[in-house]
Every structure is written in C-alpha cells, then in structure tokens.
Amino acid sequence: MTAAWTAASTPAPVPAPRTVLEAFLPLRGEVGLDLVYDTANAVGLDDQPVRLTIRRLVAAGDVEQRGRGRAATVRWTAAGRERIERDRLALRLVRAQDAGAAPWDGRWHLLAVSVEEPARSVRDALRRSLLAAGAAAVSTGLHVSTHDLSALLGATDRRHLVLATADSLEVRGLADPLALAEQLWPAAPVDRAYDALAAALARPPAPDPLVQQLRLADALERSLRDDPLLPHELRPRPWRPAQLRRRWYEAWGALAEQLGERALYRGWLET
C-alpha cells in the first residue's frame, strides 16, 4: 500500500475553527458570518466551535462582531491586524526562501532574555514567544535564530531582550553551520510534520474550490506550525518540505485564479 494511496483514501482532517475564521477575514473590511459558517459546515465543523472561537477572539481584543448569529459580521481590530501581519511575515519569508529570493547571509542572531526575577511570568512568556518564532535555546536565557526576529516581537518584548549578531557561532563544541543547525533544529521532526501537507496534496480535490482552498490552508498551517523556517543552505538537499510547498503554491495559485475575489487569504504570498 503506497503512501499516496493511503492519503487519498483517508478523509481530510477537519480544520481548526480559528483557521476557518482567519481564512475569510480581510485585512481591511469585514466578512459576513453566514459565509464563514456555511464553509465551516462544509468541511465538517458545527456552528458551535466556530461561535466559541469568535467569542474568544472578541474577548482577546483581536476581532469585533457586529450583529448576531449568521447575519452578523466580523472584522479585525487594530491589535488583531497587527498580530495577523506578524503571521504573514513568516509565510512571506518561507515563500521568498523557496523562490531563492532570501539566501542566508551567514549571520546568527542572538537574543538574551533580561528580566528581573520577580517578573518571572514575563520572562517565561518571552521565552515561549522566542521558541514559537523559531529561535533555539542555547543556554539559560540565551536563544539563537538564523533570522532577525525583531519584526515578530512587540515593543514590550524588545525591552526585555539584549540583541546581537555574530558571523560565527560555537555551541558545545559545534561550529560548522550545518552541524549546528541539525543540533539546534533537527530536520527529521520538521520533515515529518509535512506529512500533513503531502497527504492534502495527494487527496482528490474537493468539488467546491473554496473548500479545497480551506483544506490546503489548514494542511500548510499544520506543517508550518513547528517549522523554524531555516534558510535552505542549512537543510539537507533535497529538502522535502520545500518541494511540497512548491507543489502547494501551484495548487493554491490555480484555485485562487479560479475563485477570483472569493479566494481565501488574498495577498498572503507576495514576497
């Protein structure tokens, strides 16, 4: 039994309610919840989890809702727009890397957390944010990244960081960049995470192109979730995640052309 046959015969995972909502929300303007709920239903989600997600995002100050039920509309707040713009930076980075437009400059970016002991919760939250942004911990309070993460960090976070760059780095006796990358960001678990994307690309497309786009968006999000997005120079060649993403871009572009103004996540892939 081949992996492609297994993927094609396995039902597509149900996207997260948050993925469904964010897929429809334009950066400016609003979207009607009737369209959000109808498409969520089409991919296997009931109204209730979508409704709860909207409530959480409203409570967090990321979106605002006008009206009630399916007749309501939602839009980003300024805070929500800032957060989603940071998410788009990561997607644009990987798109540029895959297109060969963002080669590694050979520099390591060091981030040291500098927080007073009484503010332990601030320190712990900042460390989680750095790990989520793809940085790796190399010692207590010190993280390293192959990218400048300043655009992904808010002004509050930057006040608690000491930032530096280096042209060379040695960690526990390792100085070769490829060996360091494998030590700090092992390739195998990142590669395995892209099984979700491989499966989505192998399944027969959904009859509704909007549903198919949503499934592809969910598969890419699942695969990218724990990917530190290292430059290609620091990964094995060929790098399967990059190959799968290129196939994804082609499939996504064809669907976007078919859907026109109805396409999801318009503008996310510009480099």
Results as ranks from 00 to 15, higher is better:
A179K: 11
W268Q: 13
A155R: 13
L244I: 07
P241I: 05
P186W: 00
E250C: 10
G141V: 01
A254R: 13
W252T: 02
L163D: 11
L210Y: 03
P204L: 03
L230M: 11
D208A: 10
A164M: 05
R245A: 09
R245V: 07
A217R: 03
A217K: 01
A242S: 15
D227F: 07
R235F: 08
W239G: 09
A179R: 14
A135P: 10
D227M: 06
Y265P: 00
P228W: 13
A187S: 15
L259S: 03
R246H: 10
L269I: 00
L230K: 05
D167E: 15
H160N: 15
A164N: 14
R215W: 02
D218G: 02
T146F: 12
D191W: 12
D195L: 15
L197E: 04
L269C: 09
A217T: 04
Q243H: 09
L161K: 07
L180K: 06
A137Q: 15
R192K: 11
R247G: 14
S139A: 14
L184W: 09
L264P: 07
G253Q: 13
L149S: 04
P207H: 03
H147C: 06
L216C: 00
L201Q: 04
L201F: 11
A181Y: 15
E270K: 01
A242Q: 11
W248Q: 03
E170S: 13
E221Y: 00
E182L: 08
A193W: 00
D167Q: 13
H160F: 05
A198G: 06
R266A: 15
D157P: 07
P186Y: 00
D208L: 05
A164L: 07
A206S: 12
L152K: 04
L152Q: 06
P177D: 13
L214Y: 01
G260P: 10
A219D: 00
R237W: 13
G141F: 06
E221R: 05
A187W: 14
Q258N: 05
L210D: 06
P228S: 11
L210F: 04
L178K: 12
L152P: 00
R262M: 11
S145R: 03
V171E: 11
A193I: 02
Q183A: 15
A199R: 00
T156K: 15
V171W: 11
R192Q: 15
P238S: 12
S145Y: 05
D157V: 02
P207W: 02
Q183W: 08
E221P: 00
D176V: 06
